[in-house]
Design a protein around this nucleic acid. Structure first.
Lengths: 144, 144
DNA sequence: AAGCACTTGCAATATTATGGCATTTACTAT
DNA sequence: ATAGTAAATGCCATAATATTGCAAGTGCTT
């Protein structure tokens, strides 16, 4: 029992609107991140394009969702762990971007600590692996 | 003595044109990656916008440059190490994206190996640290 | 020097993102 | 419950970014 959109909104001082609830529901459907174009396709009939942009921006700023960029520069969204806040995203897990189906997974693997060169201070570290996901591997079992 | 644009083009079976040479020169000016908009601003007078897109795509496909996406989904370009080829990018160093000035550095730090979950096969792994770079840290020495 | 294939520049179009403003909606205090 | 207020939404226009088709130009080979 994770998702309670109404409560999430309240906790972040956001007004409870049906558009915001719908966006949260849609993102929460899958642990796999969903892309902006997909969201738009799914919600375009109910929610205005511009409103969707604004809701997603708000969610990201408030630490409700993560935005993960894929190789094409397309934004993908996934629910944050509860530890995230406005000040700091704890997005310290590895992402996996399947180059066949395009899906972005949030893996349970923690991003390893990186030693920074002198003068550089890292606030967050993002690691994304590119390759073939389990589903796509199952479809092409032996490398052709 | 790293950069010889003419030779790089020849090695990759690309015709030697002044536009391609200019783009390579511009990217090679700095170890810091340069963004598509910056390139466009610098070269817009000499090179058509569309041509720039095509040259950058060609370079990326041929393994001559890396494309690194920043948080805004903007493409940034840096020269590849000589080990890169059309088949495989050896871009296994850590990137540092300064959230103050926006610059993307290629660090000398190697991306740590990540253990993938069953069924997932990673071809490349990309690690980007976000924070403040040495120059920007020097300008704000003590945290305000 | 001529022919061929590739590259470039331009125009048109598509896609993606942002800003302004009137209307509607959620929340607050009565 | 109701009215008032601030915020969110939808629609419009516009900006910024990316792609396609094609004619003209250029590099390379013979």
């Amino acid at each position: 029992m994770k998702l309670d959109p109404v409560n999430i909104l309240k906790e972040h001082d956001l007004k409870h609107t049906k558009q915001r609830v719908r966006v949260l529901e849609e993102i929460a459907l899958d642990t796999v991140a969903i892309s902006q174009p997909e969201l738009e396709k799914k919600l375009g009939k109910e929610i205005d394009r511009v409103t969707l942009y604004r809701i997603l921006n708000t969610y990201e700023e408030k630490g409700i969702v993560h935005r993960i960029m894929d190789l094409n520069g397309t934004a993908n969204y996934a629910l944050c762990s509860s530890a995230c806040s406005e000040d700091h995203h704890h997005d310290e897990h590895v992402h996996f971007n399947c180059t066949t189906c395009g899906k972005i997974y949030c893996l349970e693997v923690i991003v390893p600590k990186i030693k920074m060169p002198n003068g550089f201070t890292a606030k967050t570290v993002n690691t994304t692996a590119y390759g073939t996901c389990e589903k796509c591997n199952a479809l092409l079992p032996v490398s052709a």
